[in-house]
């Protein structure tokens, strides 16, 4: 395990959930990010996401004209806004602010009305228009009696037929009372900082998965947290600040760190 992950893990273990005392926050160091997408793949596997539904996602922009071109890769996820318009506008309070400031979703009270999707300025809430992973229902083989089928692989891998998941189904979400392991048709879903992992003192999967140690996670209200150290060191930014939603996901430094004036950056967190 990387030194950064180890120290963030240690912080997490000593973090106390004291009423309003904990404000879980993520900082993404864009200079460390290499746009590799490991976060997105890890998230998809941790949360058994249907293809095309990415809690951990990205905004990619290319600007300028050849040869003066800049390329920016911005990793995105639910911002767990302090003033979360998705929660404010939810008629059943299925979306609500939970412990640690996480914007939680209760699948049992969700009626799939989509008002949260309209209210979220970040497009981070997704509707299940069908039960997930329908392709994993298939019993068809490419070469009869020579290649496998989706159902056959699930069977070999020990995943029940009625679990709407791939053969590499991750049972981790079963441990949390607040999550449904795979979701189902008619409700929305979103990132919750992997609350099932947080409950077991493990970092969100995207943080752990990042090979560049670009994601820093911890308690904003702990003055000694790495999150606060990083936020103090750089000039943090949030997406769409003018929306006034007070995101808990901050960004520091620039993806195209090399084009910045050299010598202005501090040594990275891995040091």
């Amino acid at each position: 395990m990387s030194s950064e992950s180890e120290s963030l893990d240690a912080e997490l273990e000593t973090t106390t959930l004291d009423g309003e005392g904990v404000d879980l926050s993520m900082v993404i160091d864009l200079q460390r990010c290499t746009g590799c997408g490991a976060c997105n793949i890890g998230c998809a596997q941790e949360n058994n996401l249907q293809e095309g539904m990415a809690y951990s996602s990205r905004i990619i922009e290319t600007n300028g004209e050849f040869p003066n071109v800049s390329y920016e890769y911005t990793p995105t996820l639910c911002n767990q806004c302090d003033d979360a318009p998705c929660a404010e506008g939810c008629p059943t309070s299925a979306l609500h602010k939970g412990k640690g400031g996480i914007t939680m979703h209760d699948h049992e009270t969700c009626i799939g009305c989509k008002s949260c999707m309209i209210n979220c300025p970040y497009d981070e809430i997704h509707l299940n228009e069908e039960d997930p992973h329908p392709t994993w229902e298939s019993e068809e083989a490419t070469i009869e009696s020579g290649t496998a089928s989706a159902r056959a692989v699930k069977d070999r891998a020990g995943v029940d037929d009625d679990v709407d998941a791939p053969a590499y189904y991750n049972p981790n979400r079963e441990v949390s009372e607040t999550e449904h392991p795979t979701r189902y048709k008619g409700i929305v879903e979103k990132c919750n900082f992997c609350v099932h992992r947080l409950e077991r003192d493990e970092l969100p999967r995207c943080v752990e998965e990042c090979p560049c140690e670009a994601r820093i996670f911890g308690d904003r209200n702990d003055p000694d947290s790495t999150v606060n150290e990083v936020l103090a060191k750089y000039n943090p930014d949030v997406l769409k600040a003018d929306e006034g939603t007070e995101p808990s996901v901050n960004y520091v430094r620039d993806y195209n760190g090399g084009s910045y004036e050299r010598g202005t950056g501090e040594p990275g967190l891995g040091d």
Binding site: L12, E13, T14, T15, T16, L17, D18, G19, V22, K99, G100, N170, P171, N172, E174, V175, S176, E177, V195, H196, R197, L198, E199, R200, D201, E202
Partner: peptide
């Protein structure tokens, strides 16, 4: 939730688990 006040994040852990679900992360 009640027991969780003032204690570790771990205390968010459900006190009871159903027989057919996992009680801990595979990790």
């Amino acid at each position: 939730v009640a027991a969780g006040l003032g204690s570790s994040l771990t205390s968010l852990t459900p006190l009871a688990q159903a027989e057919d679900g996992r009680t801990d992360l595979v990790e």
